[in-house]
Design a protein around this nucleic acid. Structure first.
Lengths: 131, 131
DNA sequence: ACGCATTAAATGCTTGTGCATTGAATGCAT
DNA sequence: ATGCATTCAATGCACAAGCATTTAATGCGT
């Protein structure tokens, strides 16, 4: 792969990403009052319920899925809590940690927003050979 | 392409983009005191010199290449000008427009940063089948 | 020529992000 | 047990981004 090919690939990747994020942001915001990052965190929480026994997550565990700094994630969770979509609770075994749990409202909002996200992603990514 | 495949594709695209931007940001900032967006604008200007007669660009024309809002681009150019990398000048034919031109300092800084950018991109993108 | 909608770019304002720091809890070594 | 480095999450701070608005210039219709 030549440098020029690498640069071209990067620009395509970058442009595609920007276009999708832009669309997602607009649609999720307008229809469900959710930012892309907010939705993604809810999404991880919903997915995780299947995996975890009690549906509790350390903030740290959520960080893995979302590409955000620790501080950004901390504030994002604070916003979600303020909106009533998650609860924060101390964890007994390590009192530095914080458990994040979905509320019913959070689950509902996520389920409402999910089709919108899927639709936007499909519009951009479906029917293209390598994504 | 199923919805699950679409979502998987999106997450990969997203994660890859985040990783590259993160690396680029750190390397360009540490080594050349340039942000990713700053570098990209300089990059478009350098490329454009070959295409345009006088190397002058309307702000609007630059917006096409970079995925930034009009206001963000306006301030970015203001920063570049403050740093001495570009000049802004009125254009005679349409006095609403603004011409942006690279300075020598801008050209030099770009040429210094270019290998760094290429290296980071290569580290991430080279040798992968579909980029 | 005049008014009016339109366009280019800059700016006020709000918000989200990252870096660095802080505060608290943990664990490990002595 | 005590001290010290480490880890988790929150917070102060600075800055960049987007939206909405503003200012200035243009062009079109009458």
């Amino acid at each position: 792969m030549t440098d020029n090919e690498v640069v071209t690939t990067w620009r395509e990747l970058s442009a595609r990403h920007a276009a999708i994020v832009s669309d997602l942001e607009r649609e999720l915001q307008d229809r469900h009052e959710l930012g892309v990052s907010e939705f993604e965190v809810l999404d991880r929480l919903v997915e995780g319920v299947c995996l975890s026994a009690d549906g509790k997550f350390r903030v740290q565990e959520l960080a893995a899925g979302v590409s955000l700094s620790q501080s950004a994630l901390s504030r994002l969770i604070a916003r979600l809590e303020k909106a009533g979509f998650v609860l924060r609770s101390m964890c007994a075994d390590d009192r530095r940690g914080v458990f994040v749990t979905l509320t019913d409202a959070g689950r509902i909002r996520h389920s409402e927003a999910l089709p919108t996200q899927r639709r936007v992603l499909r519009e951009h990514l479906a029917s293209t050979p390598q994504g």
